[in-house]
């Protein structure tokens, strides 16, 4: 599924909304997540998963082709940890929960 298909599915389920509004809604949600992460916040969506930012310190890297050392600057990388409910759903455990 790509973003336009996601928008289409939401639009079909909400016929009273304009298609372009559904597109905006979907974009607002994902923009908000990226904004939060760039501020250093985390985003926790219970049952779905959590987005966090991990810090990678600067290090001496090596060009694998030439073997010369290169300085790799520190960086921040986004990380997603799958929520319990979604993890179970992927393995079809949802029906066996009591």
């Amino acid at each position: 599924m790509i973003k336009s298909e996601l928008v289409q599915r939401i639009a079909t389920a909400n016929p009273h909304l304009y298609h372009r509004d559904v597109e905006r809604i979907v974009n607002v949600i994902f923009d908000e997540i990226v904004d939060a992460l760039s501020r250093g916040d985390r985003v926790e969506l219970r049952g779905f998963g959590a987005f966090t930012v991990k810090h990678r310190a600067s290090r001496q890297g090596r060009n694998p082709r030439t073997g010369t050392t290169v300085a790799v600057a520190e960086k921040f990388v986004p990380f997603f940890k799958t929520g319990k409910e979604l993890r179970d759903r992927l393995n079809k455990l949802n029906g066996s929960k009591h």
């Binding site: 599924m1 790509i2 973003k3 996601l6 599915r9 939401i10 389920a13 909400n14 809604i25 979907v26 949600i29 994902f30 997540i33 990226v34 969506l45 049952g47 779905f48 986004p78 979604l86 759903r89 992927l90 079809k92």
Partner: peptide, 28 residues
Amino acid sequence: SQDLVERVLDEISGSLAEGDAVKLSSFG
């Protein structure tokens, strides 16, 4: 708005549960 946020997450989860990857341009 709350329903829509839930719906978006649910559509993504549902697609993944069926084994279909979800690609969201400019997000990931």
